[in-house]
């Protein structure tokens, strides 16, 4: 057990360093703006006051290291600066949208994870049958499609032709849970298609890998029933790779959510990020980029830790 703890701490440390480096990169990114930052961002027509305000906003009058320190300190305290586009505090803009994004992502996860594992297991147990081939072809297509293609097809069918779901996913705080779910059903379905396809294919591969082991053959030769072989011999050893697959694909969800939010004009963090990038609203880009990155790193971290914990060899050593 000591061993595992050590590995987990090591992994945790690596993640913290990564987050630190990423915050530095994000910070330097702004520094790298060619020419005079303020003018290039605000354009030639900017008045001297706005330029000065901008410089102060980015603390351009101080040396970089101090500026980084101040920025990081503010960030940790939840002060992400003010938006260049509309002058409102970034934290205010972000909080509500972050909650919306998490709502969409977690709804998707709740649908996609059980579905993917279930289909993956079925495809593995009935590999090379018609069912397996059907599922493999379908998922291969979903992986090949851009998210917005799936999204528009769903809109075309369910919103335009059948008119049973809204084509825009507009939500506000006054809506109750069911109507919120109803509003985000199409975007969530789009994400589910993509994430499930990836997750299911990898789950299938992981389980087939375990089923090919010599100890599964041994169990068959011992005359153990198929059900028991699956539950008792295959399952405990598949756990580690499958958990890893799930967590890694949830990390993918973070990227997918950006595009889907834009398609459905969903008021989430992804759409905010894209808007701010086109407006070059740097404080907002910095903050939302960092939040996305931290979430991504966190999910990859949990993937690794969970698969370490579920790896029988690691778990058992030196108890």
């Amino acid at each position: 057990m000591k061993n595992v703890l050590f590995l987990i701490f090591k992994r945790l440390g690596a993640s913290l360093i990564t987050i630190f480096v990423i915050s530095v990169i994000i910070f330097i990114g702004v520094e790298l703006l060619p020419g005079d930052v303020a003018e290039s961002v605000l354009g030639q027509s900017a008045t001297t006051e706005t330029v000065a305000a901008f410089r102060k906003e980015l603390k351009l009058d101080l040396p970089p290291v101090i500026r980084y320190g101040a920025w990081l300190k503010d960030f940790i305290q939840g002060d992400f600066g003010t938006s260049l586009a509309n002058g409102r505090p970034v934290s205010e803009l972000i909080t509500w949208r972050l909650a919306n994004t998490l709502f969409l992502a977690s709804t998707t996860a709740v649908i996609a994870i059980p579905l993917a594992i279930f289909l993956g297991m079925l495809a593995a147990f009935y590999r090379n049958t018609f069912f397996d081939k059907l599922i493999s072809t379908t998922t291969l297509s979903f992986i090949s499609f851009p998210e917005f293609f799936i999204a528009y097809i769903l809109i075309f069918i369910f919103a335009v032709k059948l008119n049973i779901f809204p084509s825009l996913a507009i939500i506000d705080d006054n809506m109750n849970f069911t109507s919120k779910i109803y509003a985000i059903l199409l975007p969530s379905l789009t994400l589910t298609c993509v994430v499930t396809a990836h997750m299911m294919r990898q789950t299938r591969a992981a389980i087939i890998n375990v089923l090919a082991s010599a100890y599964i053959e041994m169990a068959e030769i011992k005359g153990i029933t198929r059900l028991r072989i699956i539950m008792h011999h295959a399952f405990p050893n598949s756990l580690s790779p499958v958990i890893n697959v799930v967590a890694v694909n949830l990390a993918y969800l973070i990227v997918g959510v950006v595009i889907v939010e834009v398609v459905f004009v969903y008021p989430g963090l992804g759409q905010l990020l894209v808007d701010s990038v086109s407006k070059r609203d740097l404080p907002v880009v910095q903050a939302s980029g960092l939040i996305f990155s931290i979430a991504y790193i966190f999910l990859n971290l949990s993937a690794d830790i969970l698969s370490m914990l579920s790896n029988p060899k690691l778990r058992q050593s030196q108890i």
Partner: peptide
């Protein structure tokens, strides 16, 4: 049956 590779034939879990 007794297989050649015992290490692979025992379930590690």
């Amino acid at each position: 049956y007794v297989a050649q590779s015992a290490a692979a034939s025992f379930n590690p879990s």
